[in-house]
């Protein structure tokens, strides 16, 4: 690296060329802990999110492509959220998730609480013996979809693909590479309790299960 030779010197010298904000406060002066009250307005989020969806919709050929773009927008957030939420834990319980279950619990509880102010509704493991690598996180009413009405011809689309991207980022960051997709499962008929019910299908890669088996033996 370029600054190898400079190691050990007072760092003030290297600061030349860096522009500080007028109050001299950088990102390093800010606290990582957020107070309970500093929540964001849902209206402004909905507005921003609708713009993100229409931005992703430009120059795409199909619904899959659009969902993939939304997924990509969420991915880096997940990667960063993982470290941020861990450092906010009390020091005693600061541990890295080592198993699939502890990782999914972290997502269901910590990530959901941080993003949506509540826990995810359910956590399920695929009952199909052919797909032991699939897990499902169920959200009855995804916050991101609150003000989104999907046109009939695009009924396959679920904009919670963005949240799926965040989950994928958390999994990838924790060294559990996975593919995460969002699927609408709520019934369309009258009287349905949760018409917007969404399942996030988490499909881990083979090596994760392999390692899990090794750790279990242990």
């Amino acid at each position: 690296m370029a600054n190898m030779g400079a190691a050990g010197k007072p760092p003030g010298k290297e600061a030349a060329g860096l522009r500080y904000p007028t109050n001299m406060k950088t990102i390093y002066n800010r606290s990582l802990n957020r107070s309970k009250t500093s929540e964001l307005s849902q209206a402004s989020f909905a507005y921003l999110f609708s713009e993100m969806v229409s931005y992703a919709q430009k120059r795409v050929t199909g619904i899959q492509d659009l969902e993939k773009r939304l997924n990509h927008q969420g991915h880096p957030i997940g990667l960063k959220l993982l470290d941020l939420l861990l450092i906010r834990e009390p020091p005693r319980s600061q541990t890295r998730p080592l198993t699939i279950i502890s990782l999914l619990h972290f997502i269901k509880i910590n990530v959901w609480q941080h993003l949506f102010g509540r826990q995810a509704d359910r956590l399920e493991k695929s009952s199909n013996p052919d797909t032991p690598d699939e897990y499902m996180i169920v959200d009855n009413e995804p916050l991101v979809n609150a003000y989104i009405s999907v046109p009939k011809e695009m009924s396959q689309l679920n904009c919670a693909a963005y949240v799926a991207g965040i989950i994928e980022g958390v999994c990838d960051g924790a060294a559990f590479p996975a593919r995460v997709t969002a699927h609408t499962v709520g019934g369309k008929e009258e009287g349905e309790m949760w018409p917007g019910k969404t399942v996030f299908l988490v499909k881990f890669q083979g090596e994760v299960l392999e390692r899990e088996a090794l750790i279990g033996k242990g």
Partner: peptide
């Protein structure tokens, strides 16, 4: 703690070299 603050920057992507002189200090 400082590393997490560094990655909170929206312009930072995971696995990028950390060049900030403030971080070094």
């Amino acid at each position: 703690e400082n590393y997490v603050k560094a990655i909170m920057s929206p312009f930072y992507k995971v696995n990028m070299e950390i060049k900030s002189p403030v971080f070094r200090a």
